[in-house]
Simulated assay, not measured.
Amino acid sequence: MKTLVFALPGNEALAAALAVHLQAERGEAVIRRFPDGESYVRILSDVQDQKVVLVCTLHQPDQKLLPLYFMANTAKELGAAEVCLVAPYLAYMRQDKQFHPGEGVTSRYFADLLSGTVDRLYTIDPHLHRFHHMNELYAIPAQALHAAPIVAAWVKAHIDKPILIGPDEESLQWVSEVAGLADAPYLVLNKTRLGDREVQVTQPEMASYQQHTPVLVDDIISTARTMIETVQHLKQLTPQAPVCIGVHAVFAEGAYEALLQAGAAQVITCNTIPHISNGIQVDALLAEAIRT
């Protein structure tokens, strides 16, 4: 059984890298929009009895979901043996409970939708908080891979004397793992969220780490308010300009630029979402999981 790797729009670079790692063929398809905004999908490759890998990271998911749904179902109708989704960033994970009356638990609804669309899912560091395992949400085999080892390898290779800083208590387990793998000390701060774009972060205790480079690590950088406030604290506490690392470069409009303007020496992300800050590659990590 051959493996065919298809890129949905915007995912061409990652799909090409995965095809090389997997020694797989690139699938050919036409995906476009009609003038009325509806999606058109046509698969040109022969997928009969083949393993189809659809590469589609799911930031800004609402505009991506229908083409993905149509691609997966077209592949199944054309006789694909298995349809796998590689979604390095997985959307709709943070609404994991009803916070206010009348809300929906959209993480569960989204999981139901994807579970009925593809046969298997691969993602990286999804925001698992109240749900602790992917199988609590997904009815298909869904593998959550972890970027901690490759983030730690980047830190070891590029930062001479790091002190890792996590933004809140939720980050403790993840930041401690990266720190352990990078042979570096770490601190975890307390964060209070006041709104979608406003947070309060406690000051880190930097007295013992004046010669260390602060490395702020988080899974998602969206508005960047947490990192911006932490960077502003650090400017008053240490002479070393901080480096900011995020797994997923979600970045609301202007957030990346604001983080650099706040005083970050460097902003580095994994290539789970295409962005100018991508400096840590997840290609081999994903390929290894797909092979096994």
Rank of each mutant, 00 (worst) to 15 (best):
M1S: 13
K2T: 14
F6M: 07
A7Q: 08
L8A: 07
G10Q: 10
N11F: 01
E12P: 13
A13D: 13
A13L: 08
L14F: 11
L22V: 06
Q23Y: 03
E25A: 07
R26P: 14
E28T: 04
I31N: 13
R32K: 15
R33N: 09
F34C: 00
E38D: 11
K51A: 10
L58V: 08
K64H: 02
K64W: 08
L66P: 00
M71H: 13
T74A: 15
K76H: 04
L78F: 12
A81Q: 08
A81T: 11
C84V: 06
A91D: 02
A91E: 00
K97N: 09
Q98W: 00
F99H: 12
T106N: 09
Y109P: 01
Y109N: 11
S115C: 09
L121C: 01
Y122V: 02
H129A: 03
R130P: 07
H132M: 09
M134N: 00
E136M: 02
L137V: 12
A139K: 09
P141C: 05
P141N: 04
P149W: 01
I150S: 00
V155W: 00
K161E: 05
G166Y: 10
E170Q: 06
S171P: 11
V178P: 01
A179Y: 09
D183W: 12
P185T: 07
P185Y: 11
L189A: 15
N190S: 14
A207N: 05
S208D: 15
Q211L: 13
Q211A: 11
Q211D: 13
H212P: 08
P214W: 02
D218I: 12
I220K: 02
I221T: 14
S222D: 14
T223A: 10
A224F: 01
E229C: 11
V231F: 05
Q232H: 10
H233R: 09
L237C: 10
V243D: 11
C244R: 01
V247K: 09
H248C: 11
H248T: 13
E253G: 04
G254H: 10
G254T: 12
Y256N: 02
E257G: 07
A262Y: 15
Q266C: 08
V267Q: 05
T269G: 12
C270H: 06
C270Y: 06
H275K: 04
N278H: 08
L285H: 08
L285A: 03
L286S: 05
E288N: 14
R291K: 13
